[in-house]
Design a protein around this nucleic acid. Structure first.
Lengths: 238, 238
DNA sequence: GCAGGGCCCATTGTATACAATAGCAGGAGC
DNA sequence: GCTCCTGCTATTGTATACAATGGGCCCTGC
């Protein structure tokens, strides 16, 4: 991989991990020195991140600052995702789902059954779920065969914690594990209903189900608020 | 304005005007020579356009080619816009529209009445409509106060001819002028209904109306197909 | 004559020098 | 003492030199 793409990844991770605080200035020279490269790839990376919305132009027009996400941004982005994924599901159902896509979705259901079938969560289940969940959503979105829609969702997923593959690590507290299990079980059952609607060609129901399903992400955010809050803008983190 | 932004504008116009053909390779050095600048601002501009989706990485991984839009892309992007603007209208209606926003929308209605009230189109009406139409849509989208939604729409509008401010020049053929008048009258009446739904707080109706309203763009495309088709990918232009 | 390998060239990736610009601080004048 | 102007400095904008890379073409050997 080219160096400049590595810089993009590093910078993005520095922001998403909270190493660079929201509102903090990001100048080219300090970053370049810190990473041991010249300004050129750093400039490139900042351009990429600016387009993604992770950094925004500084008020004085000199350079960038780390974007201050609010909890409202996350909610809003999830709502946008619900609308777009719902639309994708409707398109897919209307056109008729292909046998391959149906098989892929059913494989996700089987994987999901393995996670929730035990009646409780064990270490590794969080990652397993995140993986199958991303596949599930990608199949629906890709199945829409609507490039602008796919593109819009990819952009929207740049808002931290709003995407279907958002942070969903394992947690240890027993009470929270139980709560997370409940959320995943609900999501799993929704997955099943969504597949049913898609296969039967019921576009309206598929759209409604997917839109509702996106709100499961809200629950995850509540669960992981302690990990998320340091990354938010001050006025929203209180 | 900085030079690199001017380069972005120039390159974007070269693509959207068809000067650079779909599928055509865009290398840094020829472009830099042609515009009389160094490769640096050209590299910047290409990065911007790539993230906008107007150019895509070349298959061999060297440089970019002009993106080949299809008529389906335009339709798809308009459908995405309908979904997102519809959502914006619903949010705005649910929260309750501010007096200022309502006044702005009514001003657009008044401008629209001036265009269609004559019972026919005269030179300049096309531009006048495009201006008020953009204002109308921006008021609704901005009124949603949903940043990710606004962002998604801005990205989506990069697809040529899909945005609310899309190409709508004056045409001379009498029959086509008549047809365009009909389309604008319908759109104008839809605008009126949308404002009514927004003011009365009927989110569901506002969403449905805006979504339906977006399809007016399809009609415009049909009207201007001769201007649009040279910009499309070969397989879709037949 | 065809296939394989190596060299050359076209093009992008990276570093760095220099230019331009805007903010800030310090001094001078009122 | 306050204000305005000027010069400095920090930072980004631009140009260019050089490195790296991958593909195409030619040459050679079979």
């Amino acid at each position: 991989m080219s160096q400049q793409n590595q810089i993009v990844l590093k910078l993005r991770e520095m922001i998403l991990s909270g190493l660079l605080r929201p509102g903090e200035r990001v100048a080219e020279i300090p970053v370049a020195d810190h990473l041991g490269v010249s300004r050129t790839p750093v400039r490139y990376a900042l351009g990429v991140l600016a387009r993604e919305g992770l950094v925004v132009p500084s008020s004085n027009g000199r350079g960038f600052v780390v974007r201050e996400f609010t909890i409202k941004d996350i909610h809003d982005a999830i709502e946008v995702r619900g609308a777009l994924e719902g639309m994708a599901a409707r398109l897919l159902a209307q056109r008729g789902i292909s046998p391959e896509a149906e098989a892929g979705l059913r494989a996700c259901l089987a994987d999901g059954q393995r996670v929730v079938g035990k009646g409780r969560l064990v270490p590794g289940d969080g990652v397993a779920w995140a993986t199958l969940n991303e596949r599930f959503h990608d199949l629906i979105v890709g199945g829409s065969e609507n490039r602008p829609l796919i593109h819009a969702l990819r952009i929207n997923d740049q808002v931290p914690f709003s995407s279907a593959k958002a942070f969903l690590d394992d947690i240890t507290d027993p009470v929270m594990t139980r709560r997370q299990y409940d959320i995943l079980l609900m999501a799993h059952m929704q997955h099943g209903l969504i597949v049913k609607a898609l296969v039967s060609g019921d576009g309206a129901r598929a759209e409604a189900l997917v839109r509702e399903h996106s709100y499961a992400a809200f629950e995850n955010i509540t669960l992981f608020r302690s990990a998320i809050y340091p990354l938010l803008a001050k006025e929203a983190a209180g």
